[in-house]
Structures are given as structure tokens and as C-alpha cells.
Design a protein around this nucleic acid. Structure first.
Lengths: 219, 219
DNA sequence: TTCGCAATTAACCGATTGGTTCAAAGCGAT
DNA sequence: ATCGCTTTGAACCAATCGGTTAATTGCGAA
């Protein structure tokens, strides 16, 4: 009963049976999976609710409507991915090794975050209107381009990289290959067989992508 | 009244006011646009009907249900694109020139067939289940890989191409870059600015893609 | 002219869906 | 004990949506 630490602003609700933050987090987690699986119009509020510990009522109580929920899912997904871009410590590596590491990391990272890839696909179907509406997504764009630029500058100084490389274009190429690998795996496998989707195929492909990118910047 | 040319099998209905083939074609055209714009679950039967010269009833009369219509739209889209892959006459060019032409053609082709790209995106959201269910799509896969293989062989014989190039992987890389360019333009522009989406940006990008691909096969 | 099938229209329907109403319960503060 | 705000549950609802019923017309064939 000793009122130890009772800040007015920060609500101390760890002891509550009612735990709104946990409920919201639960909804967001399930909603991300459902939106990633079925798209904005394809996902069903009832289905999200069923897979949650709470009820459909709470979805609209906390998130207003379906589209707002979708927007929050998107924002959280971008936030998670950015936080997940752990420090690669590329500064200590020579430019070629740094670039190799960055590319293969991106390749694996996309592969491991399929839900995020699918959300971005869905968002592109919507012509990016929801990411455009989100200031937080637009504001904190990933440090990938700056990292690249730093690597490129070092490589140019050493005379091993071409001097006419556009960092944004290079980032675009890396993203494109790593993204496409995940986004189009289904149709590509159906039409050309799953040679590339197998584990060995993916290893060979990653090597190829790394090689192709590195090769494109060497003098 | 002289019953001139009245084949039993091939119905001569050019003179009819009722023209089922035209009605079906009209529905398919609008349906393709609507599915490409809003996805399978997002597209509305009523909206498709409204933009057609006919009624909603006719959609279900000719196409059974929404999913069947979607499947026919997909098949027609793949058919159109394959027919549109006009003869590039690459045989007469030296291997490098042939490859350059193939890549830049693919780049432009994807750019010009946005609806098709979007249908493929949507299909990947559905994990390719509808293309997998279509024998006609699986059967006639594009001649792109064979064309590539032919170019690669000539290049290898001349000693200017590496001997360890996997044609399918090379096709994958070309597809990936050209596809991503269209599919992810929206989100990429929102986050990194539209430098790449501008006309000049696209020209520079195409040159870069061609260069990157060619560079990746040279010894 | 009439028969019979294909094509077409208008009205209709049941199920689903996103979203709400309303009242009750949890809980900190006093 | 009780006030007042937040959180929750159950039932409910209006609109939307894919799909259908049933009756009508167009038209070639006999």
C-alpha cells in the first residue's frame, strides 16, 4: 500500500488483470499475419478476432476501423524491420567485403521477413497510398543508402570501384533482386520449376546476386 | 437469301445483333482492369458490370463465378503477353548485342504492361494457386529462357561469355529487375523519392540494368 | 409460322461483413 | 463505499456482395 513510485503520466498497469497494451499487441500481431496473408480487402475482421484472445469489438474499440488497423500494422512492420537492421559493422571491412556482406545480409533478411515483403506487395497494389499517408514511414527511411554510399566512397578512394555509381540506383538493384526472390517465388516456381526455390538453389542464387552486384561496381 | 456458306460448326454470327463473343470479350477486358486495380477480393462484380455494355447477370452467365472469371482473365493475360513477345531476331546479332536487346526489350515490355505485372503480383499474394491450377499457363512457358540459352552458347563458343552461367538464373535476374521496377515503383518512390521513376531516371536505370546483366556474363 | 435453344433483363435473395449499441464489469482514486 | 473512467462482452444492424430465379426476347432452322 505504500504508494511507491506513482507517476501521474506513465500509467503503471503491470498488475492489472486488464491489460490494454497486451490486447492491442495481440490484435496487431494477428492482424499483421492476416493482412499479409489475404490483403486489405481479403482479410476478415472476424477471422482476426477469432485468432485473438479478445473479441471483434475490441478491434474497433482500439483501432477505429479496418483501414486504420491496416495502417498501424504497416507502420509497425516498417518499424520492426528498421529496428531489425542490426549494425553490420561494415566500416571495419574492405569495400568489397562490406558490399558482399550487405548484399547477402539483405538477401537473407528479406527471405526471413516474408510477412513484411507481402505487406509491401499489398501496399504496392494499393499504389502506396497508405505508406504515403504515414509520416512515420516516410520520415525514417532505412539507412541502407547511406551505408552504401559510405562503402562506395571508400572503394572509389582505393581506386577499385567505378566513380560513376549512383548509390540509390545500386540500392534499387539490391532491393529489387532480394525482394523479387521472395515476392515472386510462387509464380516463378509454377512456371519454371522450383529449381531456384530449393535450398541449394537459394544458396547458388545468393552467391550469384552478390557476385552480380559486386561485379557491377568494380572498375 | 441464297444460303451462301453456311458451315454447321463454325457459327456465322457476324450479322447478329446478339454477339456473345463480343460481350464476353468486353467483360474480360473490364474484368482484367478491375482485377489488376483491386485484386481478386477487392474487385466488385457490380463495378465490372457497370463499366461493361452488358449486365451483372451476364458475367455469371458466361463465367460461372468470380473466381472463374479471374482465372480466365489471368489466362488471357498470360496468352496476350506471350503473343506480344514478338520475334526479336536475336540470331543475327552478336551475343552481347543480342543480350542487350533482350534485356532492354524486357525492361520496356514490363513497363508497358502494368496490368499484367499487377495481375502477377496479385497472383503471388495468392501464392500462385490460380496459375498453378491453369494447365494452359503452366504448359506454354515463355521462350525467354531458350532464347537466352542460345545467346549464352554463342557467347561461350566465342570465348567472351563465362562458361558457368545458369540460363534460368540469368533469366531470373533479368525478370527480377524489370518486374520490380514496375511492381514496387509506388513504395520505392514514396520512401526514396521519385528520382528513379522520372523519365530520365528510367532511361538511366535501363542502361544500368542492361550493363549490370551483360557485365555479369562476360568473362 | 412455329419450334427450340441461346442470349438478355429485371428483380430478387441469403449470407457475409464492417461496424455499432448498450449495458455491465474492472479498477484506481477519494 | 462509491465515484468515474476505461475496458469488455453479447447481441444487433444496415449495407454490401456474390450469385440466382424466372420470365422475355432474338434468331436460325424446319
Amino acid at each position: 500500500m505504500t504508494a511507491e513510485a506513482k507517476p501521474k503520466a506513465s500509467r503503471q498497469r503491470a498488475t492489472w488483470k486488464q491489460d490494454p497494451e497486451a490486447v492491442k499487441a495481440d490484435i496487431l500481431r494477428v492482424a499483421r499475419e492476416e493482412f499479409a496473408a489475404h490483403g486489405l480487402s481479403g482479410a476478415r475482421a472476424q477471422e482476426i478476432a477469432s485468432r485473438t484472445k479478445t473479441s471483434k469489438r475490441m478491434i474497433f474499440y482500439y483501432f477505429k476501423d479496418k483501414e486504420s488497423l491496416y495502417r498501424e500494422v504497416l507502420e509497425q512492420a516498417y518499424r520492426d524491420v528498421r529496428n531489425g537492421e542490426k549494425a553490420l559493422e561494415l566500416e571495419n571491412l574492405d569495400p568489397v567485403a562490406a558490399l558482399r556482406k550487405l548484399v547477402s545480409y539483405t538477401f537473407d533478411h528479406h527471405r526471413q521477413n516474408e510477412d513484411f515483403i507481402r505487406l509491401v506487395m499489398i501496399e504496392n497494389i494499393h499504389r502506396g497510398s497508405h505508406v504515403a499517408a504515414s509520416e512515420t514511414i516516410k520520415a525514417g527511411n532505412s539507412p541502407a543508402v547511406e551505408q552504401l554510399q559510405e562503402i562506395l566512397e571508400r572503394g572509389m578512394q582505393q581506386g577499385i570501384f567505378r566513380s560513376d555509381i549512383n548509390p540509390l540506383q545500386l540500392h534499387w538493384k539490391i532491393s529489387g533482386l532480394c525482394f523479387f526472390n521472395v515476392s515472386n517465388e510462387s509464380t516463378f516456381s509454377v512456371i519454371f520449376g522450383n529449381e531456384i526455390a530449393t535450398q541449394e538453389g537459394q544458396i547458388a542464387l545468393r552467391d550469384d546476386v552478390v557476385h552480380t552486384i559486386v561485379n557491377s561496381v568494380l572498375v
